[in-house]
Amino acid sequence: MKQGQVLEISWLLLVLLIAFEPWLTRKNVIFGVVFSQNEFWTASYLKKLRWLYFGLICLVGIMINFSVQSFGSAINLIIIGLPLILLLGIIAFGVFHRLVWRWQEQQPTNHLQTKKRVTVDLKELVTNQLSPWWLGFLLVMPLLAGYLAVTNYQVLPASLPIHYSLNGPDSWLPKQRACWLILANQVLLAVTFIVTGYLTRQAASVHGSPQATPGYYHFRRSIYFFMIFAGLMSQIILLTPLLKVNHLTTWLNFLGLFSLPLLIGLPLLFFWLFIRRKKPHGPIIDDNSNWIWGMIYYNRNDPAIFVQKRSGLGFTFNMAHQLSWVYLIAFLGLITILGVLAN
């Protein structure tokens, strides 16, 4: 498969992912607006809005695809097309969020929504507590990488591959530098997955009663252990140059082919099983005003810095806290530094 085809398929998947965003959510959350009854999901006006959003994103995605390619190579899809479609997705989502909120305010039957009371099932909370110690598994691979770098150093080839394309390794470094790079990457991956795994232990973003977020604890546990699994898979892939493996490229291609569908598919499968399929009901806290455009969380009264996204998939910052800004700037800084170093 050529690089251009890979880019086009990736682009198509990305556009579809953005277009399906209104469906990748709990049934009582529509464009970031929370409802106390999931029956609202099938309201004809809201159905129309969802399909309108889908059509809009697909149409613009196709237009960008054709116009970008007519001006140059497929790589422009990522350089120009990606920021464009992401920006459009954000703006469209914000506009549709306002429309849904306005529509909700006109509904007389939203009586179960309350601004005052929140109910928690203590037994459920105790039995579903996740120990952070499981994340310690992610430290095994950096230690193993260190051990292998030392013990296998003499028998390793003079240069080691550090980057792979579909046709095999395309970048090498002398083995001393490569060993240090692999070790640094192992530690970076461990830290990334430990932090991300730790954050998945957050409370649900829809509050009010345990029935408002059915299946939430199962989903949280699945994602927590998935993060550990994904971290270990990534670390194993990075570890392979240090192993004395024959046919390294075949082995890496196999791992890549095997792990990529799992890494993308499993979270979506968990989401469908434990969140999307469930029917939420019961009173909820009306905190729509804390969600700017249904995406950005701003709540001075909430002590949490990281919160679950409104949709239930992923997490975001509570922008009312100064520390959130520090984390955000540090994260963007880290990405920039890594980007510069990679080039």
Partner: peptide
């Protein structure tokens, strides 16, 4: 409804769930 020996959630977990201060 709760008996001796039963556990209560951690302070952080309960505060997060109720959206109140630790």
């Amino acid at each position: 409804l709760v008996r001796p020996g039963e556990k209560l959630p951690t302070i952080r977990a309960l505060a997060n769930q109720l959206q109140v201060n630790l």
